[in-house]
Simulated scan of single mutants.
Amino acid sequence: MKRTFFLTFVLLCGLLLSVGALAQGEAFGPVRSAIRNSSSRELAQFFAPNVELSFDGDKQSYSATQAEFVMKDFFAKHSPASFDFIHYGGSNDGTPYAVGKYTGKDGAYRMFVKMKQADGGPKIATIDFTKE
Rank of each mutant, 00 (worst) to 15 (best):
116 K>C: 05
4 T>R: 15
109 Y>F: 14
25 G>D: 08
106 D>K: 03
24 Q>P: 03
98 A>K: 01
6 F>V: 11
116 K>V: 10
103 T>G: 02
11 L>Y: 02
6 F>L: 13
60 Q>N: 08
64 A>D: 15
70 V>I: 14
112 F>L: 08
40 S>T: 10
113 V>Q: 02
102 Y>T: 07
94 G>W: 04
57 G>P: 05
68 E>V: 03
61 S>P: 01
75 F>Q: 01
25 G>A: 14
42 E>Y: 11
17 L>A: 14
30 P>L: 06
17 L>G: 11
83 F>G: 00
41 R>N: 06
84 D>R: 10
116 K>H: 08
60 Q>S: 09
126 T>K: 06
30 P>V: 05
6 F>C: 03
31 V>L: 09
103 T>H: 06
22 L>E: 09
51 V>P: 04
79 S>W: 04
69 F>L: 02
39 S>K: 01
125 A>N: 03
90 G>V: 07
61 S>T: 14
63 S>L: 01
66 Q>A: 07
9 F>D: 02
31 V>W: 08
81 A>F: 06
49 P>S: 06
99 V>L: 15
91 S>W: 12
4 T>V: 15
97 Y>D: 10
121 G>H: 03
58 D>R: 04
126 T>I: 12
74 F>S: 00
118 A>D: 15
74 F>T: 00
92 N>H: 07
57 G>S: 02
25 G>T: 11
77 K>Q: 09
24 Q>M: 13
61 S>A: 10
3 R>C: 01
45 Q>V: 09
73 D>L: 07
84 D>E: 12
52 E>N: 13
101 K>P: 03
63 S>N: 03
120 G>Y: 04
42 E>F: 14
103 T>Q: 12
41 R>I: 09
23 A>E: 11
60 Q>I: 00
100 G>M: 09
114 K>N: 10
14 G>D: 10
87 H>P: 03
120 G>N: 02
42 E>I: 04
73 D>P: 01
36 R>W: 12
92 N>S: 13
78 H>K: 03
91 S>Q: 13
7 L>E: 09
35 I>K: 04
38 S>V: 11
68 E>L: 12
8 T>L: 15
113 V>D: 09
86 I>V: 14
101 K>N: 11
34 A>G: 08
3 R>Q: 09
50 N>Q: 15
1 M>I: 06
23 A>P: 04
131 K>Y: 05
82 S>T: 14
